[in-house]
């Protein structure tokens, strides 16, 4: 998968937990929790959603790498393309 394809998946999953947000307007380098009112259960839903969509196992220790959209894309790209 390309990074653009992975980003599209990340935004789709994010859209499920923040349906009202204009996702294209989010700064990919700033923490999602600093831009959207997402609580911890929302964030767990986000991780579960990424796992469902991409089939990537995300260890607890790697969760901080998913704090931003850029971080998600970089991390997931390395994991997806390693698994395939």
């Amino acid at each position: 998968m390309t990074e653009a394809e992975i980003k599209a998946v990340v935004l789709r999953v994010l859209g499920a937990i923040a349906p009202e947000a204009d996702l294209a307007a989010l700064d990919p380098r700033i923490s999602l929790r600093d831009q959207l009112d997402v609580d911890s259960v929302d964030f767990l839903n986000f991780i579960i959603g990424l796992h469902k969509e991409l089939g990537v196992d995300i260890p607890d220790a790697d969760v901080p790498k998913l704090a931003t959209i850029s971080g998600c894309v970089a991390y997931l790209a390395s994991r997806v393309n390693k698994q395939r």
Binding site: I30, D34, Q35, L36, D37
Partner: peptide
């Protein structure tokens, strides 16, 4: 400054 990063006015206020 952190408050300004919020996407929605409501979240910024909260």
């Amino acid at each position: 400054q952190r408050a300004e990063r919020f996407h929605f006015e409501k979240d910024r206020g909260e």
